[in-house]
Design a binder for these strands. Structure first.
Lengths: 225, 225
DNA sequence: CGGAGCTCTCAGCGCCATCTCAGCGCGTGC
DNA sequence: GCACGCGCTGAGATGGCGCTGAGAGCTCCG
C-alpha cells in the first residue's frame, strides 16, 4: 500500500513515516504544497495524508486542485487543533477524512486502512485465493482456517500478489509497490521473500500457489491452488 | 513492442531497460541527444522515452526536430522535478505525455501501454485468432480455454505473429521486432522458435495456425485455423 | 548489554531458456 | 526426375536466472 505523506515538519513526518512503514505501508514524503500536488498527481498512491499548513501551496488548495484534475485518490487531512480550519470545509473540497493534531498513531493507521478499503470499493474486505485468505484490516493470513504468521514485509508482498492474483507481476513492479518507488537495491530481495512466503504459505500445505515465470516475474494462482 | 529509451544516466537506463524487457518490451537505449534523434528517426519504434537533460542535444530539441521531420512516434518525456522544464511546453513541442523523476515504474509501464494503444487505436486489449487468445497485460495464452505456458521469447514471437495475423512476416522482420533491431545472429533462431511454438500451440490441438511460406516468411492464420 | 526478530546482502549452485549446429527431408526450380 | 537449398528438428553448449543457506546489520526488548 503506497502512502504519500505531505508534511513540512520533518520531525513529525519522519516519525509518521517510520511508524507507517512498520505497519507495512510504503511511504513517500513531500515537504511542500507544490511537490505534494505533483507527487499525488503522478505517483499512483493508494492514499494521501495531507497537512494543511504547507509552504508554497496550502493543503486546502492542494486538495481542491487534485479533485479539479480528476484525481480521486483518497485524502486524509491533518488539521491543527486551534481550529484555523473548519472540518466541514474539508469534506466540501473533496477530502475523505480528517484528523486533528495531535493525533493518535493507531487512529491514523485505522483511518488509512478504512480509506484504502473504501477507495477501491471493488476490493473485498478480505482477499481470497482458494482456501488462502488475507485480511488487510486485521492483518491476518490463513490457509484452510490455519493462521499463518508473517513479518510486515512478507505480509506486504503477499498482499500485493493477492491483489493482483491471476496476473504476472514483475520483480521491478513488486519492488516499486512493496518496497519503495525509488528502491535502489538488488532484485534478489524479492526472490528471497518469495522464498520465505513459499515456506510459510505453500510448503506446509503442499501447495504451489506462487508460480515463477522465468524472465517475467511471479503469478499468484487466482484459486490459490 | 519496441521502445527507444534516450537517457544518459546509465544506472537508471539499465534499471528501466531491464524492467521494460521483463514486461515484454524490446528496448534499445541511446545515451546522447544526436544518437537518440537518429534512432528515433530510423528505428521504427512504437514509442520513445526521452529524457530532457542529454549531452549533445537536449530532449526538448530532439522532440521538436522529430516532429519537424514528420515523425509521429509517440513520445514520453522524462522531466526532472525541480521544474527546469514546464509541463505545458512538453505538449507544445509535440510530446504525447510526460513523467517527472523520480517516477513509479508501474506508472511508466501504464503510460507506455496507453501511448502505444493510442498510437494504434484499433488494437484490442486481448488478441484473438479463432480460439487462440493472447493477453499482453496478463501475459496469458490459451486455446479453447486451455492455458498454454510459454517462455518470454516464445510469448514475444507469438505476440508479434498475432498482432500481424493474416500477414506474411519475414524472418528478418521477426528478428528486428522480437529479438533486437541490431541482432547479429542467425535467422535459424526464428525457425527454432517457430518450431517450439507449433509444438505448444498447434500440435496438442491438431491445428496448423502458423503457416510457412517458403522463401517469404510465416503467416499466422487470422482465424487461428 | 545480550538476545530475538526482521531485513537485506552475498555467494554458490542447479537448472532452464536461449541459441548454435549439423543432419535430414521435402519443396521447388530447372 | 534430379539436385539444390530452405526450413525443420534433435542434440547439445552456455550463460544467466532464480533459489537457498549463511550471516551481517539494525532495532526493539528485557
Amino acid at each position: 500500500m503506497r502512502v504519500l505523506l505531505v508534511e513540512d515538519e520533518t520531525r513529525l513526518a519522519e516519525t509518521v513515516r517510520r511508524g507507517l512503514m512498520a505497519e507495512g505501508f510504503v511511504v513517500d514524503v513531500e515537504a511542500t504544497g507544490p511537490d505534494g500536488l505533483w507527487s499525488a498527481t503522478e505517483g499512483g498512491y493508494d492514499v494521501v495524508v495531507l497537512d494543511i499548513m504547507l509552504p508554497g501551496l496550502n493543503g486546502y488548495d492542494v486538495c481542491k486542485e487534485l479533485r479539479r484534475r480528476e484525481i480521486w485518490t483518497p485524502i486524509l487531512m491533518l488539521t491543527a487543533k486551534d481550529g484555523e480550519f473548519d472540518q466541514v470545509d474539508a469534506f466540501d473540497l473533496g477530502a475523505d477524512d480528517y484528523l486533528t493534531k495531535p493525533f493518535s498513531f493507531a487512529v491514523l493507521v485505522a483511518r488509512l486502512r478504512a480509506l484504502i478499503r473504501r477507495g477501491a470499493p471493488e476490493r473485498p474486505v478480505a482477499l481470497a485465493a482458494g482456501d488462502l485468505s488475507l485480511n488487510p484490516s486485521t492483518r491476518r493470513v490463513s490457509r484452510g482456517g490455519v493462521d499463518i504468521s508473517l513479518t510486515p514485509r512478507e505480509f506486504g508482498l503477499l498482499h500485493y500478489l493477492m491483489r493482483r492474483r491471476g496476473e504476472v507481476v514483475s520483480k521491478v513492479d513488486i519492488l516499486q509497490n512493496v518496497w519503495d518507488a525509488h528502491y535502489e537495491g538488488d532484485e534478489n530481495v524479492v526472490e528471497v521473500y518469495i522464498g520465505y512466503l513459499r515456506r510459510k504459505v505453500d510448503q506446509p500445505f503442499g501447495r504451489r500457489s506462487i508460480e515463477t515465470l522465468r524472465g517475467m516475474g511471479y503469478r499468484m494462482a487466482a484459486d490459490g491452488r
